[in-house]
Structure formats: C-alpha cells, structure tokens
Design a protein around this nucleic acid. Structure first.
Lengths: 207, 207, 207, 207
DNA sequence: GATGAATGAGCGTTCATTCAT
DNA sequence: AATGAATGAACGCTCATTCAT
C-alpha cells in the first residue's frame, strides 16, 4: 500500500493511482483499464483521479514515462558492470531488457505494445528516454566495431534490430504465444545468443 | 469439424461474414470492428451473425484461424521456391513473414498481439496451424544443420527465436516505435540479415 | 399515451419519445432534457432512443421541424380565413402566432430560443419551413401595399420586424418577464395593435 | 443591503469575482461559465467563491442585477439627451436598448432569456431595476400623450409592448434566426421605425 | 479568509448480446 | 433463417458543491 517513498501527501495518492493502474493493466488487460476501475480499485471516486491527472491519456503517459525511466536505470546499471567488454556488455543489456519485460509486463504493454492511434498525443520529448535506452545498445555495438569484434553497418539501425529481437522475445512470452513444448529459459537464451552471434565479425572472410 | 468446406447455404453466409469482417478489420482497424459494423456491411441484421457464430470471440477466433492458414500458404510458397538451399529458403521465409505482417497490420494484431484474456476459449486445436507455421522455419534450420551450413542446438527453439525476431520487427514497425531517423527498409534488411548470420556455422561460406 | 394517429408500431415509440421530450423540455427546462431523462420518462432504456434517432441533435431537429410544420399549418389556416382583407389577415396571423407560442411553449423554446452554437448541425433545408412561415406575413403586407392600405419599404424586412415583435411578446410572456401588474391579454392586444398601426398608410401625409 | 458600496476587503474580492465572471460570460459564453473557470481566472480556489456567494445561482443573480443597472444607466443617458422631444427620446431609448443587447449578447441571455426555473430564488426586490428600465419608455409615452403626439391607452402596457418588440429584435439577431438575406441594420431600423409609427397620433406631423 | 481534497450526479454515446416473433 | 426491438453495462469526462483544516 505505502509503496511511495515520497512523503508528500499529495504525491501519495498519485503514486497509488499509478501503481494500481499498472497492476490492473496487467491483470485485467488494457480494455479493462478505465478510470472507473482504477477509482474503484483505490477506493476513491473516479473524479478524484482528475485531481492528479489531466485525463486518461496523461495517466498512461505518466506510466510510460515511469517505465522508460525504470528501464533506463536498469540498462545503465547493466552497462556499467561491463565497461571494458562490448560483447559482455551487449549480452548483459539483452538479458536486462528481457528480464525487465518479463518482470514488468504491466509497464511493458503500454510502453511498447500500445498502438499509437490510441495514444496520439504522447509528448515527443518523452520519447527521448526511449531513444536513450536504444543508445546503450548502439554504444556497445560501436565500441565492438572499434575493437574489431563486431561487424556492423549502422550501429543505430543494428541496435534497433537487436531491440526488435528482444522485444519479439518478450512479447511472445507475455502473450503466451510460445509453443508449450519449448522451455522459456532455453528460448530466451537462444534468442540472445543468436542476437550476439549475428554481429560477430567472422574469423574467416566470406567472399 | 466441417468448418468451411461444405457448400451449404449456411456456410455461404458464414464465409460472407468472415470476408466482410476481415475487410473491415484491415481497412478500419480493430476498434471499428463491431458486430453492428459487420452487420451493416453485409446487409444483414446484427442478430444474424449469432446464427453463425457464438459471439464476437468466436468470430475473432475464426478470423485468426484464417489468418494462420493464409500465412501458412504464403510461407509454404516461399519455402517451395528454394527447395535446395536452406539459407535462401530461410531468408525467403523471413521476408515472407515480415511482408505478411506489414501488409496486414490489423490482421497481424489479432493474430499475434491480442492479449490471451480476450480469447480465453480459443480452441487449442487451432493452434496447430500456428505450430505448422513454425515448422517451416524449423525444417529449414534442420536441413541447414544436415548440410553443415547452420549451427543449431534445438531447431524448434531456434525457430522460435527467429520467429521472435521477426515478430519484434513487425511489431515495432506497426506500432510506430522505430526511431523516425531509421529507414524502415534498412531496419528490416538488417534484422533479417542478423537472424541469418546468427546461425551460420563459423567456417561456412555462402557462395 | 396513444397520441399517435399513425398505427405503425415502429413509429409509435418515435412519437412517444418526441412527445415526452417536448413535455420535459417545457416542464423541466432545456438543461434537464437529457437522453436519460427522456428514457426514464417513457420507461425505456436510454439506448432505445438511439434506435429511432441518430442522437440528441437529431431528436431536437425533429422536434423543431415538427413545430415549424405545426405553426405553418396554423398560419395557413388563419391566412385562408381572410383572403380579401390584408389588414384582417395580418391581424389574424399575429394572433395565430402568439396563440401558438403560448399554447406550445415546449416547441417554442427549441424553435426560436435555442442558441445556434448548441445546435450547429441543423440541416439548412429544414429552415425552409421557417422561411415559409415568414412568407405568410410578407404576402399580407405586399397585398396591403398593392391596395394602398400599407406603407412598406421591403416586405420581407418588415415581415421580419413583425415577427420580431410577436416573438418578443411571446418570449417575455413565456419567460415570465412581464410586469405582474400588467394584464397579459391587454399586453398581447396592445402589442398586436401597435404592429398593425405601424404599417397603416397615414391618411394625411407627414411631410 | 450593503451590496457593493462599502469599501471592505470582503467586498473587493466580491467585485473581482463579479467582474471576472462577467468577462468570462461575455467572452466565452454562458456554457463556459463554471465555478472552476471563474476561480482559475481570478487566481483563487473555487471554494473561495462560496465565501462571497451562496452558490452559482446567487452569483448569476448578482450578474443579472448588475446588468440591469448598467442598462438603466445607459437608458438614463439616452433619455437625458432628449428632454424635450418624446419622439426623439423614445427613438433614442429604442436604439439604446438594441445596442446594449447586441453589444452584450451573453449578458443579454442571462438577463432576459434564462428560463425562470433556473433562478427560482431570484429576489423579487431586484426586479425593481427591471421595472425602472421600463419606466423610461412609459414616461416618454406619457409625455408624448400630454403633448398630443402619441396616442396610447395605458402607457405601461404600451411600454411593455415596445419592450417586447425590441426584445424580439435583439433576440432573433442573437439567435441568428433572421433570414440571411436580410440586412441586420435594415432589420433593426425597420423594427424601431414601426414601433414609433405604432404610436403616432393620426394627425400629428413630426417636423 | 482561504484552500485542497474529495465526491455524487450527470452527460451523450457505443457495444455485445438477448429474445419474441 | 432472419429480424427488430430492446437492454445493461460501460466509457471518459465535467460540474457544483461540501468539508476538514
């Protein structure tokens, strides 16, 4: 209940709303996330939410932003643990991303799966956090290239491709779309391994 | 059991409904796909749909199933064009999947992105089509391994990983989550290339 | 209850809705006229109203249109009773208008007092009925001019001025804005008399 | 009783509220006049307004009262400029009234068009101002009768009729209910001219 | 004197679904 | 086989008002 570390009374309910919304989102699905359900869940009237957020969009934006920041913090930590080896760092970043997605499915859906039509007015400046997250991957690739370990055309494009692979991995797992006969951990490990191998500069030249 | 092949009049309207629903879905989007919309479009009353489908969910399931079959057909064609070279075949399969996703975004959404809670009663037997689709990739990998071109532990797990990469690629593109500065085609090409390179046996040369 | 003379079942509820809406309008005021209140009053669900009207605006438009037609019919009758004398006809038209307004305050408010901002999409073709109503007055004036009884510059402008006087008279009475010490009938009679005297060609020229 | 003339701080904010409310009313329209809007505009909390007014109704009553006083002042000025000629004075009064209405449309709405049920508790003593406004017209008529220029039965009834004509004129113009083909100025001029001609004693010459 | 927090009632509208016919 | 009539539940949101502080 008292998850908020910020002691100000005003911010407390705001936190409560955000936390509840996030939980409802993953437990009941996006369609079930209405101002009323949130209000009911926190035991306040629907009107009260409007004291803290301009509307449903603003609430979702706040959620997305929180998620982006949380992810950024974790990626930064992961990157910091392998300052020397781009390979190890990239590996850690991949694992970190997947872990984050699986541990925070509630964030994940609105962060990466919500169709833009439903969220048209997301303030572009907040996308900066998203871009920053991509940069962790791009930098690792760049350094790998510098050290002759990776072979990459455009590091930002390749970083996006890495991101796509990881996103697909998380996405399928969350949506329960992976064949039941496949062990999730093996699936994740394989996905990450292949991502890494996709960049390795071949020892032997191919042409 | 006799889902669609018998020529009875009953099946005819069922087809009509499905075709119309698919059209609406693709052209107007998932949100616009309501029973009333479909009914209006086919010129029948909304009630009539219930004579042929248990409800909206069942209709969606049927649509998903159709989509899976359509995708399967396309993948089969793509695979058939490269019976000898597993590498080229895998490449074609990847391109085929991405194309399918981008050409049928709304279709794609209900096939792979709809949260499971919205389709609780999706009959598991229908997942067979989905599994079959995965098999195209797995077989290509298996043959590549046989020919010493690919290096893979478990072909079904790896096929799932390939699928995850492709799904992530399509997903991010459809959700407009790829950085605007990145060219979509370069992004797709890079993603597919990395997938392929992820399997290459170190010593193998492709030409 | 069974005010409708049209026997079709479908039209019956439509009539019921219109009648109820009209009554609620005058008894509870425009602000109190919501889809829900109407629905409650007729004992149906709010949704049912949408089976007969596209929305609240369409409902109001129908009400306005009905009122315009009813007024037109009455004006036509009044005019027909004095085909020869423009003066008597004009007098009858004035009395008819005021009577209509006082007898149908429910129609009157939405017909003449609703601010356009609240009803932006009123189909212009329906204003034709309103214009036709004005024409009864304009024709009487024209004929009076022909017969040398009236002195008028532009008959349509003058007809509008007549209409304004009558509208003001009805309006103040309905809004209870006439001094309590003033007898309503005397007020009406005086208003109409002055309107008529305003057109009389002076027996002696004034310049 | 001590409504607005004492200089206490309490009265100052009351003034501020009224002025702001009037501004908002005139500029944004009646619908946009909410307690929150007013509060935001004055930089106080919405709650504060309740320290100075019993509620929104009371605030509206005060606004109406102010409007009546403002109109009275303008009518008084107009009357004062023609102390000798009742005809010219009546003419000036008419023009003044119409001008006031057209210049302050939203003001006009709450003063003369708000349905009584919305202002049940409007204190009757405040209607005095409204009655005073009528007296300007009645006095002009009385003097005209004394001078043999006007022919009038009951000057207060006739004044009410004049008022009705003017009110109708303003009303139709504000509600945009005058045929688009009719020039507003010609319409106003004609309306006023007819009002005046309605009183002229048959033999009287005006120049 | 002033406020922030909170609320209940209400708005127009959409939707999937049911049922008697 | 097909339908028109009807509905309950829900949606995001706004408003005037209250009350403890």
């Amino acid at each position: 209940m008292t998850t908020a570390t910020d002691g100000s009374e005003e911010a407390e309910l705001r936190r409560h709303i955000l936390d509840t919304a996030r939980h409802l989102l993953v437990q009941e699905g996006y369609k079930a996330l209405s101002m009323r359900t949130i209000a009911d869940a926190i035991g306040y009237s629907a009107t009260s939410i409007y004291l803290h957020f301009d509307g449903k969009d603003a609430l979702l934006h706040a959620l997305i932003h929180e998620g982006m920041m949380a992810l950024r913090d974790r990626l930064r930590d992961a990157a910091a643990q392998h300052p020397e080896s781009p390979v190890q760092r990239l590996h850690a970043l991949c694992e970190c991303f997947v872990e984050f997605g699986l541990e925070n499915p509630e964030y994940y859906e609105i962060m990466f799966q919500l169709r833009p039509e439903r969220m048209e007015r997301y303030p572009p400046e907040k996308y900066r956090a998203a871009r920053e997250n991509l940069d962790f991957f791009a930098r690792a690739l760049d350094e790998g290239v510098d050290q002759g370990i990776f072979e990459v055309d455009d590091s930002r494009v390749s970083a996006s491709a890495v991101w796509a692979s990881l996103h697909g991995t998380v996405s399928l797992l969350l949506a329960d779309r992976v064949d039941v006969h496949i062990d999730p951990d093996a699936f994740i490990e394989t996905a990450i391994r292949q991502v890494l191998r996709g960049f390795q500069a071949p020892a032997a030249s191919t042409s």
